[in-house]
Amino acid sequence: MQTLFLRGPSATLRMIIFVIISLALMTVDHRWKHLDAVRNTLSYLLYPVEYVVDLPIRLYYWGEETLSTQQNLLDENRRLRDLQLQSRVQLQKLDILEKENERLRELLSATPKTTEDHLIAEIIAVDVDPYRHFIVLNKGTNDGTYKGQPIIDAHGVMGQIVYVNAMTSTAMLITDVSHAIPVQIDRTGLRSVAFGTGQTDYLDLRHIPHNADLRVGDKLISSGLGERFPRNYPVAVITKIDRDTGETFIDVRAEPLAQLDTSREVLLVWTQNHEKAMPEPEQPAETPEEETVEKPAEEPDKEVVEEPVDAVE
C-alpha cells in the first residue's frame, strides 16, 4: 500500500472491465429489466439515508400533532365527523348504484366489475431526480405492493410503481416523460392515451383527429385498457385545444387532477389482476398473469376492443 507509484496498468485494466460491465448492465436493465434483485439489495443500503432525510419532516408532523391544543383537535374532529356524515350519505347512493350496475352487467353477461383493495402510503420527502417525476413511498413488498401498481390520491390518478423494495417503493408520476396512461373522455367515451410531458402541469393527448368531439373542460378518466390502471378514475381535465388546420392532428393539453406535488398521502390500489397480500381467489380462471408491456396499451385507437361504455350512465 505504501508504494510511491500506484499500479497503473491494473487500474486501467479494471477501468476497461468496468466499462464493459456497465454497458452490459445498462443493456440488460433497459431491455429485459431482470435486475430488480440487485436494485433491491442496494436500496437496503440507501434506506437509512432516506430515513434520515425524511426524519425532520416526520418530526414536524409529529410535533404538529402532539403540540396542537385540545380546542384545535376538537374542531378538527367535528369537521371530520361532518365530512364523514356527508360522505356516508353519498356512499349510500353509490352502494345502490353499484348493486344496480352489477345486476345490469349480469343481464348483459358482461365481466363482473370487481372491487379494488386500497392501502394508504406516505410519500417520503426525498428528491430523486429533477428531470424525472419520481416519488418514493414508504410501502414496499412487505406490504404487498408490486411493480406496475397504480397509485391515486383524493383527486385522481397519480402514477404507477416502477421499483419495489422491501420497505419503500419508487413510483413514476403520470407527468413523467416516459409515462403514458390510457384514458377516455368522460362525456363522449372517446378513447385516447395521455402522455407525460416532463412538466408537472399538463399531459399531452396525441393522435386526436380534427373531427373529434372535444371541449375545454372535458374530464379524462382512466379507461382500464392496458390492464394496469383501474377503470373510471379521474385523470385530468382538458385545458387547451389547438386546432391548427395545417397539422394532421390537433394539439390537446390536459391538466392532471391529482395533486402531484402537494399531497403527502397517496392510495395504493390493488386491481383485480393482483390480489392483496392474502389472496382470496375469486375468479382464478380469468386472471391473466404478468403483462410485460411497459406502457399500457400502445395505440388503443387502432385496436378495436369491445368494451361497454359504462352500463349505467
Binding site: 487500474a11 448492465l25 436493465d29
Partner: peptide
C-alpha cells in the same frame, strides 16, 4: 479506486431511479 467509484455510482443509480450502470459508468 475504480471499483469503489463504480459501486458508489451504482448506489447513485438506485437513488436516482436510473438505469443501473448509468451513473456508475
Amino acid at each position: 479506486g475504480v471499483t469503489i467509484g463504480w459501486l458508489v455510482g451504482l448506489m447513485l443509480d438506485v437513488s436516482h431511479g436510473a438505469i443501473l450502470g448509468q451513473h456508475a459508468l
